[in-house]
Design a protein around this nucleic acid. Structure first.
Lengths: 204, 204
DNA sequence: TTCAATCCTTAAACTAGTTTAAGGGTATTT
DNA sequence: AAATACCCTTAAACTAGTTTAAGGATTGAA
C-alpha cells in the first residue's frame, strides 16, 4: 500500500475548523494556534510516547491512526484508545503532572499530527478564556466516551462489546488488524476469531 | 445507626475550599457560588436521578455517599461510580445534552449535596474564566481516573481489580456492602466472596 | 524474489467467572 | 418484638474466555 499521508486540506486549517464545532476562534486566537502548534509527519510504527518518558505534547491527529497502550508484566499490549483524524491524544496523567508515563503512543498508519507543548497550552489557557472552554468540552466528550466504555466493560460480554465497537467505529474496523481490536476489547485475538465465526454463521 | 449527616463545616465553605486546590475563587466568584448552589439533604435510598429523566443538576457531595449505576435487560445493577465527600457527580451525557439518562444516582448513605442547575453553570462558565478552568481540571482528573479503570478492566483479572480498589478507596471498603463493590468491579457478589476467602487464606 | 515477521484461524485442554440454590446472619421497618 | 428485606457465604454445575500449539496467508523488508 502506498503511503497516503497528504491531507486534502491545510492541517492548521483543519484544526481551526475543528474548534468551530465548540466556540469558534477569533482571528487573534487563530494566529496563536498557528504560532504554537507544530506539524509533524510520523511514519508507521514510530512512537510519539514510550513508557518511562514524560508525555511532552498534546496531539491533534490530522491524518493516519494511532494506538495508545500499556504493556503488562507478561509483555502483552493492552489498547486503551485509538486516535484517527480529528481526535486528540496524550497521556494526561503524564502530560499535566510532568511525570513518567506508563503508556505508549504508536502510529499504526503513516500519520500527520499537530502538536503543542505543555507550557504553550498553559499559555493559551491562561491568556484566552476560549481555550479553557474548548478544551473543557473536548475533555467532557472524551469522558462520556470513557464512561460508556466502562459501563460496557462491566455489564456485557465480549460478543456485545465487539458489536458495539463495529457500530461505534466502523471506519476503524477495516483499518486495524483484529489483534489490535481484541486488545482494545480486553480479550485474546483467538477468542475474537471465535466471536467472528459465530457472528458470520448467524447472518448466513 | 444514627444518621450522621451534619458536616462539621459550612457546606458552601467546603465547596469554596475545594476550589482552592485549583485556582482559588475571588470574593465575587465566591458570592456567585453562594447564590447559585443550593443545599439539599438526601435520605438513604433516595434518587437524585432515575433512568428516563434528564439530569438537571451537577452535584457536589458534602457528606454521605452515592452510587451511579445502570440497570441491564436482566434487571441487574452495574455501578459506574461511587461519589463520597468532596466528589462531583452527574450524568454528563444527559446533563449537557439535556437528553433522558440511562442511569440512576442513589444515596447509599444519608447525604448532603450542593447542586447547581445547567443554566446556572453555563452562566458561570460564560461570565467567569475561572469556572471554565476549574471545571476543566476537575474533569481532567475524572478522566485520568476513568482511564486507569479502563486499563485495569481490560488488562487484569478480578483478584487484582479488587486489590486495586482496596488501595484506591480504603474509606469506601467498610462503608459499602460487598454486593455494591462486586457490581463496580464487574463481577458477581458470589465470586467476590471467593476472592475474599482466597485472599484471607493467603495472609494467615 | 526470498526471507522474516505478523496475522488469522482452528482445536483441545484449561481456568476464571457465572448460575442456581440454599442457609444463616444483620439491619431496617412495622 | 416480629417481620421483612437485604447481605454474605458455600457449593456444584455450567459457560465464557484463555492457553498452547500448529498451519496457512499476507505483508514488509532485504
Amino acid at each position: 500500500m502506498l503511503e497516503q499521508i497528504q491531507p486534502t486540506e491545510d492541517p492548521l486549517q483543519m484544526l481551526i475548523d475543528n474548534f468551530k464545532q465548540f466556540f469558534p476562534l477569533s482571528t487573534n486566537e487563530q494566529d496563536e494556534v498557528k504560532r504554537l502548534f507544530t506539524q509533524r509527519i510520523v511514519k508507521r510504527k514510530v512512537f510519539l510516547l514510550q513508557e518511562g518518558e514524560v508525555c511532552r505534547h498534546y496531539y491533534f491527529v490530522v491524518s493516519g491512526c494511532f494506538k495508545m497502550f500499556a504493556i503488562d508484566t507478561n509483555f502483552r499490549e493492552h489498547n486503551l484508545q485509538f486516535a484517527a483524524e480529528g481526535d486528540w491524544i496524550a497521556d494526561f496523567q503524564s502530560f499535566y503532572n510532568e511525570e513518567p508515563s506508563r503508556l505508549y503512543i504508536e502510529a499504526v498508519e503513516p500519520a500527520i499530527v499537530l502538536q503543542i507543548q505543555h507550557k504553550d497550552l498553559l499559555y493559551l489557557y491562561t491568556n484566552y478564556h476560549k481555550f479553557d472552554r474548548n478544551f473543557r468540552i473536548i475533555i467532557e466528550r472524551k469522558l462520556m466516551e470513557y464512561q460508556n466504555r466502562i459501563l460496557l466493560n462491566i455489564s456485557t460480554n465480549a460478543d456485545e462489546r465487539y458489536v458495539v465497537f463495529q457500530k461505534q467505529y466502523p471506519q476503524l474496523i477495516n483499518r486495524l488488524p483484529s489483534t489490535q481490536i481484541a486488545s482494545y476489547l480486553g480479550i485474546t485475538s483467538e477468542f475474537l476469531s471465535k466471536i467472528r465465526k459465530k457472528a458470520s454463521g448467524k447472518k448466513q
